[in-house]
Every structure is written in C-alpha cells, then in structure tokens.
Amino acid sequence: MSDIFSLISQSATGLFHLVVFPGGLFALLFGLVLKGIDRKVEARLQRRVGPPLLQPFYDLVKLASKETIIPETANKTLFMYAPLLGFTGMAVCLALLPVPGVYYGMENMGDMLVFFYLLPLPAIALMVAGSSSSSPFGALGFSREMTLMFAYEVPLLLVILAVAMQVGGEGSAEFSLRKIIEYQREHGSFGFTLSMLPAFVAYLLYLPGTMGVPPFDVAEAETEILEGPLLEYSGGLLAFFQLTSAMKLVIALGFGVVMFFPGTVAGGPLVNIVWFAAKCLLLMLVALTLCKAATARMRIEQALSFYLKYPATLALVSVVLAWVSL
C-alpha cells in the first residue's frame, strides 16, 4: 500500500514539476522574459530603443493566430511532428532541472548525462524539419545544423566530465546533480575554483553555439540560406519552435548555473528562485547578448574548427586538472 501511495505522490510531484515549476509554466514565462530582455539589451547596445519587453509573447500570440500552411512537397508527418520532438525533450529536461535552494530534481534521476542527451533534441528537431521540407535550403540547413551540433557537443561532454570528476574524486566520476550541488556547498562553487575556470569558459563558449546566436547562427543564416530549416514553417508550428528555443534557453542557462554557481541565499524558496533567475540573466547577458551584438557570423567550417580548438582544449585542461589535483 505505502509504495502505491508513494508512487502516486511521487508522480503527482513529478507532474507538478513537469507542468508548474521548474517545468512548463515557470520556464515558459521566464524563458520568454529572458528573450525579451535579450532583445532589449541588444537594441540598447546598438543605440536603439528596442522592442517592448513582452514582445516575444506578442510574437507567440500572433503566430498562433496565423494559419499554418503545410507545403505539399513536404512529407506531412515529419513536418508536423518535428517541433513536437524538440518541445517534449525540453519539457522533460526542465522537470529535472534543479533550482538550488528550492528543488533538487527527482531523487535518482536528475543526473548530467540525461541533460547531455536531451539538450541537443531541439537541434535534432530542426534537422528533421530541414530535411522534411524538401527545399534545397532546408537540406543545406540540415547539413549545417548537423555539423554545428557535432562541433559544440564535444566541449559540452568534456565540461560535464570535468565537473563529474571534480566532484567524484580519486578517478571516479559523480554525475548526479544533487551531489554536485552539495559538493559545491562545502568546497565553494566551481565558478570560483581555479581548476574549474577553463571548464566554465568552455561552457560560456558552448552557450552561443547551442542557442544558435550570431557567431554560430549558421543554420538559420537569414542572409545566406533564407532561415534554413524554418523556411517552410508558419503559424502554430513556428510558434512551437519559438517556445522550444525559449525553454532551451532556460535549460542551458540553468544547467550552467547549477554546474558552476549553485550557491544559495538565506531566505525562503521565493528568494532563491529570484536569485537563480538573476544568475541566469547575468549568464545570458555575458554569454549570449554581448556575443550576439559584438560578433559576425562564422562560416560552417570556421565554426567547426573554432569549437574543436578553443572550448575543447579548455575543457580538457580542466578535466586533467580535476584528475590530477586529487
């Protein structure tokens, strides 16, 4: 009996985490507000007034109200369900995202490898969208997205490895996020420990890649291949893609905060949520907005060689440091 109750209560809390916090509702609102702030700050960097903060909401509502045209040449099912693929991946990932001081993820499920596998799902969704839309630009977008994904997945893996080995000690690795947060509470968060600094910089360079922000927005290069995979999408399906990218923004930033700055602040869960949001915002401003405003777009092979050179070696350095320092 008791295990049934625990099963029900566990699934109820699971559902709560999936739908309300830190999952659907919270992440959506927070992600869209983050995007609004991002566009506003980028505009101010370019001496423009910039759109109203809630502009991403208006865009979503407008896209939802528009009719969705499905091109005949595209293969229907893939075209319809590609956005869903990315959306579900992000929703599940959000449910596991620990917010230090408030929620420490599901007991034994929330570890970094799950994040490593779920994070590229929106990129895969874009690839599926590109290949299904049968326009030559879609195909080109597909191959570029694939190349870029390989490029930025390598440093992510190394960063995760570095963090895991730092927590595990004596050559063993500890992937559970819960233990990582506790380790950092005792030994000080990794963002300030010397050996983990290269990994942090590698993660900073990884962020624009995964979010498709200008230096690496090769897949949706507007002026070269006309929005790439999203060329054929319109109306509701396009709104799904925007939602997914907003949620991915929250996950990528949250994951970075959890790995490097999980410090909590005295005070109730509400204060800690605000503290977590502030850290995400700061991380976004440094890694994404400034990067978007200050750089030009790289060619696909330049992006590939950039990722395999700098972030990968930086992460490797901190892996070695983590392994040696014990």
Partner: peptide, 8 residues
C-alpha cells in the same frame, strides 16, 4: 553606444 543611450 550603451553609455550614449538610444539615438532613435
């Protein structure tokens, strides 16, 4: 640019 504020 940031210091000067928007020139719109």
């Amino acid at each position: 640019n940031l210091a000067q504020g928007p020139s719109t």
